[in-house]
Design a protein around this nucleic acid. Structure first.
Length: 588
DNA sequence: GCCGTTTTCGGCCCGACTGTTTTCAGTCG
């Protein structure tokens, strides 16, 4: 069961409580929704957290829900959940997937028309709306019937928030909308916020804040966005549109004098905001996107132009957006003990890049020359670059042939070195760890490299113990210093292979090896939660791009963002070291 | 059901928008 499925289950429990007796179960409902939100926002699999007994670190998941989840992972169901949800017709739950249909509305429709079949309930509701049967129900009308019909159609076409997009794609949408917004003189400033600003690996919808003295004009301009499918809502302070590609864009407008409060509010996460607001209530302050007011004097709101001022007014340090997931950052900010996170400018080199040098590998080659990639390295002000093409294919070459290809590449690198001197070149290779734990390159060839990156590219479906053994065996070679994309996950595609990370961490510490934070947008691997854990173990990480083209070398920002989401400081990342120190580590 | 900088009891974020109402309920983020 994946996180979204678990979150849906918890939401269904909350919905069941809402329908049975909203007043009686008011706080259980909040608790279950909170837990669902916490889990759907988690980037590592709850399945693993339960198995590794790390679940208590999730805020919103306490003793009771934790034991329910343990039962769920173990047996596939939860008796307590079954008891609660059994009181509600099964057909209510699929309807909750439709935007704007909450528990009350869904239940009303199901009950009024005796819709019993959960498999067809969405079609049934669509037909009822088409045949104008819903408008006569109490509390409904022509408009709400039309909205139901419309949203079900969009849901069926996949135009819904359920599919999350990779971070760079979300940035692209944001850029397009921003360039549209800039055309209006009513908009003083426009900034993308939400999960985009927190640099979540995937983004559901795009949130944008604007500072304006003419909110009505600003919002009218926003909803006139040429690539919109339709306007979802439009008020005097906020509006939402669906783009023609089916992605939702939310906009909030605010007076420039309160823009800092809006930045804080709209960046989230929800869980961060709720926790922060609960904390502030205890000291008599009520927070909103407008500013801060005292509970004793609710008519007066203090406004803040800058987000820094907002946090400062709460006697806290400003919290980097990447940390705002309510995992302890608020407490540290109060104590002025936040870590100083690694920054893009700290990075001194990229050690995982693939040039087009003809290595005859079994995996994909790069498309640009070493020279072109070095030029980009120069522009990025790097001190060093490590070329790490895939090893020559084992099935098509003898050991001797592999040795001669690597020798040829070394000679070519020496030539280039004499031409470009501002960036130092390190001779690496990305080498497969074979099923038996051996490396795909023998000792003689390894000896002529500065070091090696090792990684898994085959036979993913091994048992956790076997895979851990395989990785550690390959990683044990003295030349192997970096384990690339350690979990093997591909976002929205596959969850990766299973590894015992406590063992991997221990191994890295004992042998002074580093785990890669791969910046490739569909990988972002290590995942942030594992980075956080690795850092706690004092394991070194290294942030690389895995570029297969010179233009991809700027993807470094995404890897750095994941490091920041995992609370990594400059000291935790080996490629923040200057060349001499880095080489010393690499050859240690 | 969760949680702890006045608490192991007694609290629980805050506001916007829409449709169907005639002062509000439901949904969302």
């Amino acid at each position: 069961m994946n996180n979204q499925q678990i979150a849906t289950l918890l939401k269904n429990v909350a919905a069941s409580y809402t329908i049975s007796d909203e007043k009686k179960y008011r706080f259980q409902i909040i608790a279950y929704q909170k837990a669902a939100d916490a889990i759907s926002g988690q980037t590592s699999e709850i399945n693993d957290l339960v198995k590794e007994n790390r679940l208590e670190h999730l805020p919103g998941v306490g003793k009771s829900i934790k034991s329910h989840l343990e039962e769920l992972i173990k047996t596939g169901r939860v008796k307590h959940f079954d008891k609660i949800t059994k009181q509600i017709p099964k057909s209510v739950f699929p309807l909750l997937e439709i935007p704007n249909l909450g528990p009350k509305t869904a239940y009303k429709i199901v009950k009024a028309f005796s819709l019993k079949n959960a498999d067809t309930v969405i079609d049934d509701t669509e037909n009822l709306a088409k045949n104008k049967k819903i408008q006569s129900l109490e509390g409904f009308g022509e408009k709400s019937q039309e909205v139901i019909l419309q949203t079900i159609k969009e849901y069926k076409r996949g135009k819904t928030k359920s599919s999350r997009m990779p971070l760079p794609y979300a940035f692209e949408i944001a850029e397009k909308v921003l360039s549209h917004l800039k055309k209006s003189s009513s908009i003083i400033e426009a900034v993308p916020l939400g999960s985009l600003r927190r640099m979540m690996p995937t983004v559901g919808d795009v949130d944008i804040a604007v500072a304006t003295n003419e909110p009505k004009k600003a919002i009218e301009h926003f909803v006139s966005y040429p690539y919109k499918h339709r306007i979802l809502e439009q008020g005097s302070a906020t509006a939402s549109i669906l783009t023609s590609a089916g992605k939702q864009v939310d906009l909030m407008a605010q007076d420039p004098t309160s823009f800092g409060a809006l930045l804080q509010h709209f960046t989230g996460s929800k869980s961060h905001n709720v926790h922060l607001r609960e904390h502030c209530l205890k000291i008599g302050l009520s927070l909103s996107e407008h500013g801060i007011k005292s509970v004793s004097e609710p008519s007066k709101t203090k406004r803040y132009k800058k987000e820094e001022e907002f946090y400062k007014a709460l006697k806290m340090d400003w919290i980097p957006p990447e940390m705002r997931e309510n995992t302890g950052e608020i407490e540290l900010a109060i104590k002025h003990k936040l870590p100083k996170l690694v920054e893009l400018a700290d990075i001194k080199g990229d050690l995982h890049i693939h040039s087009n040098f003809p290595m005859e590998p079994s995996h994909d080659m790069g498309i640009d020359s070493m020279k072109d990639m070095l030029k980009v390295g120069q522009n990025l002000k790097y001190e060093y670059l490590g070329f790490s093409e895939h090893n020559p294919s084992v099935s098509r070459h003898t050991k001797t042939q592999i040795y001669s290809i690597i020798t040829r590449r070394n000679e070519y690198i020496e030539q280039i070195k004499s031409q470009i001197k501002s960036v130092r070149v390190i001779k690496l290779l990305e080498i497969d760890i074979l099923v038996n734990g051996n490396l795909a390159v023998d000792n003689k060839s390894l000896a002529i490299l500065d070091a090696a990156i090792v990684s898994i590219h085959s036979s993913f479906r091994m048992k956790k113990e076997d895979m851990t053994k395989r990785v550690i065996e390959g990683f044990s070679h003295p030349k192997a210093k970096i384990l690339a994309h350690p979990t093997g996950r591909m976002l929205n595609e596959r969850s990766g292979y299973e590894l015992d990370f406590e063992k991997i961490f221990d191994f890295c510490i004992e042998n002074n090896k580093a785990l890669e934070i791969n910046s490739w947008p569909n990988r972002l691997d290590l995942p942030d939660s594992l980075i956080r854990q690795a850092i706690k173990y004092k394991v070194k990480c290294i942030i690389n791009t895995d570029s297969h083209a010179a233009s991809q070398m700027t993807l470094m920002r995404y890897g750095v963002a994941m490091g920041r989401r995992g609370w990594a400081t400059k000291n935790d990342i080996t490629n923040t070291l200057g060349y001499n120190d880095f080489i010393k580590w690499l050859k240690s």
